[in-house]
Design a binder for these strands. Structure first.
Lengths: 185, 185
DNA sequence: GCAGAATGTCTAGCAGTGCTAGCATCGGGT
DNA sequence: ACCCGATGCTAGCACTGCTAGACATTCTGC
């Protein structure tokens, strides 16, 4: 049944095309501009094909988010290898700044995927592991809490910054201070 | 012109009615359920009336947010008076937890109101002042940066918690740790 | 090679969204 | 008593997510 396998492969390819088209559209014009019609236009199919790949629009955004988790984990790993805790913080905030729509899909837009209760994507869990390892030397026997707090702080900085609610010129100072607070035990 | 003044007063009253109806609806069913038709139904007018008070739906949400800034500042002040930095953190996170839709309108939904660039609502500025004062004893000559960082951390905790992305049982631990990091200079 | 079945895609449409033009109707000023 | 401006309404537009049903097209069994 090689012919069916090839079909299946082409189908998966089209699924990936939809996801990357959605991501591009979101990054270019924001998620509110990602409509079924525009997306169908972009991939040069009609709207119903979207629904043969994904349950609904939210599922497409979730697929984009999943890509993001993978890429974030890679970026975080590189960051921590380059410059420890400070590199991790820089990598996280740079990722959020460079891919605002992607970051929104991952952490701001509420989706069906409620983690912590239920199953967490493996890539996200790997990202958390990077935090855990990086933070462990500075935790008094409770790296989980410190890792969650560090992540939360970075998330807060990322989202408030994205909304222009923090003074841009103090960006570096805030990261410095955060890292100093954690490392100075 | 007493009659006109009375009319104007009734008009303002209706404006407030719209805002509180929107807030109730959002708190009860989430912002995605706040539509012009439902809102008009709730205040027992037709949709066009909404537009004689507000430019558009976003402006209504912004009015709700403005209410929230006032209330948050009050809550933060009480918190810091009761238990210093820890009371401030508790008050902030309790506010976000008890009024999730309100908090969304204030800090999550992106609106025209980009602060930091442009004018910041007076009540929000007052809220930041509470942070500044509470944090000042623990800052090495740079309370602004520490206040922004503290606020960001709480915001991160609040939003990630709201999305069920943090372990609920560690809630108190995270606050403890955050406050300890700041106070332990 | 060919009829019939199965798979896949598209056209057309529904219900609901934010928002507005234009028409009644009501009330105050002269 | 009349006029006229202000006010709220009905109806409608262009858009949204999503789906039913018609139409090809391709594969299967003979």
């Amino acid at each position: 049944m090689s012919v069916q396998q090839r079909k299946e492969k082409a189908r998966e390819e089209r699924g990936r095309l939809i996801v990357s088209a959605a991501r591009e559209l979101a990054e270019a014009e924001g998620w509110e501009a990602v409509t079924t019609r525009k997306l169908a236009d972009k991939v040069e199919y009609s709207q119903p094909v979207l629904y043969s790949h994904f349950k609904n629009m939210d599922a497409i955004a979730s697929a984009v988010a999943l890509q993001g988790f993978d890429e974030l984990t890679v970026a975080l790993t590189k960051g921590v290898e380059r410059a420890g805790l400070r590199g991790l913080a820089d990598a996280y905030l740079e990722f959020a700044r460079e891919h605002p729509a992607l970051y929104q899909a991952m952490f701001v837009r509420q989706s069906e995927l409620t983690f912590a209760v239920g199953e967490i994507p493996a890539s996200l869990r790997a990202g958390f592991a990077v935090f855990l390892a990086a933070v462990e030397p500075h935790a008094d026997g409770d790296p989980e809490t410190l890792a969650e707090l560090f992540w939360s702080s970075l998330h807060g900085l990322a989202t408030l910054q994205a909304g222009s609610r923090l003074r841009p010129d103090l960006h570096e100072h805030r990261i410095d201070l955060l890292v100093r607070l954690i490392t100075a035990h």
